[in-house]
Simulated assay, not measured.
Amino acid sequence: MIVVDQLQKIYGDTLAVDRLSFSLQSGQICGLVGKNGAGKTTTMRALAGLIDATEGRLQVAGCDLHQDPLQVRRQLAYVPDDPPLFNDLSVGQHLDLIGGIYQVPDYWPRGQELLREFELEDKQAVAARALSRGMRQKLAVVCAYLYEPSVILLDEPLTGLDPPGIRTLLESIRQRAAAGATVIISSHLLAMIENVCTHLLVMQHGRKQFFGPTDQLRGETDSAASWEQAFFADQHVESFAGGSV
């Protein structure tokens, strides 16, 4: 579902992503972790087609991003850490907009189900500008789920969510993966996402330091605390480089 082959992104004199390669299959959930500036958001934005790769090949749902960007966008949803909602549109109008753009047949019942799932059903007439940070995040996720994309990219999606909201989001990710979607979730809250992920991608200074199934990483560490050491202490992260795929 996702193939990243030798992705490189350069901004001026800054090498943001350096020859990154990995692949994910249908139903897999990948946690993307690393320090600020590791290249996580750049990688997601490149996969979403929002920025052009300097070099490399990107495939999403069997489509080459360079050759068929429109088809990729039909198959992919990207939710950034600060969702760009339309402030003057209500919650319900956002459903109308996304349902129309993606030509989702009979989208309204599906939209109502999602609003109930994320506890936004009573906010349908409320403008996006009046929503709290967490509610805006939920609405962005609802819009992403509405057209049932086969690839979902979530960049720091837990920001602003309360504990019940986090639980709902993580369970929704499991459900969509079980239905065949491929998900990448970027987060600094490792304890929150580790149990939902099937794979982990650790980045440092734009480079891949580890990529593989979570079972492989659990076999190399003893506890959740040692995971955090591995992700954020340079000497531990580098110890996983030999296990990169």
Rank of each mutant, 00 (worst) to 15 (best):
V3G: 00
L7D: 03
Q8E: 12
Y11W: 09
G12A: 12
V17L: 02
F22A: 00
S23K: 08
Q25T: 13
I29V: 15
G31A: 15
G37R: 07
Q59F: 03
A61V: 02
Q67T: 08
Q67D: 13
Q71V: 11
V72L: 05
A77H: 04
A77I: 06
A77T: 04
P83K: 06
P84Q: 05
L85T: 11
N87V: 06
L89I: 11
S90T: 15
H94E: 04
I98A: 01
P105C: 07
Y107N: 02
P109D: 07
E113Q: 14
E113T: 14
L115K: 10
E117N: 01
F118T: 13
E121G: 04
E121S: 13
D122L: 07
R129A: 14
L131T: 05
R133E: 06
K138C: 06
L139S: 01
V142T: 04
C143I: 03
P149A: 06
D155P: 02
P157S: 07
T159S: 12
L161C: 08
D162Q: 09
G165V: 09
I166L: 01
I166N: 01
R167K: 10
T168Y: 01
L169E: 12
L170R: 14
S172R: 14
S172Q: 14
A178R: 12
G180C: 11
S186D: 08
H188Q: 13
L189P: 00
N195D: 15
T198A: 03
H199T: 12
V202L: 14
K208E: 13
Q209G: 09
G212Y: 02
G212P: 12
E220Y: 05
S223E: 10
S223R: 08
A225H: 13
Q229H: 12
A233I: 14
H236C: 04
V237A: 10
V245G: 11
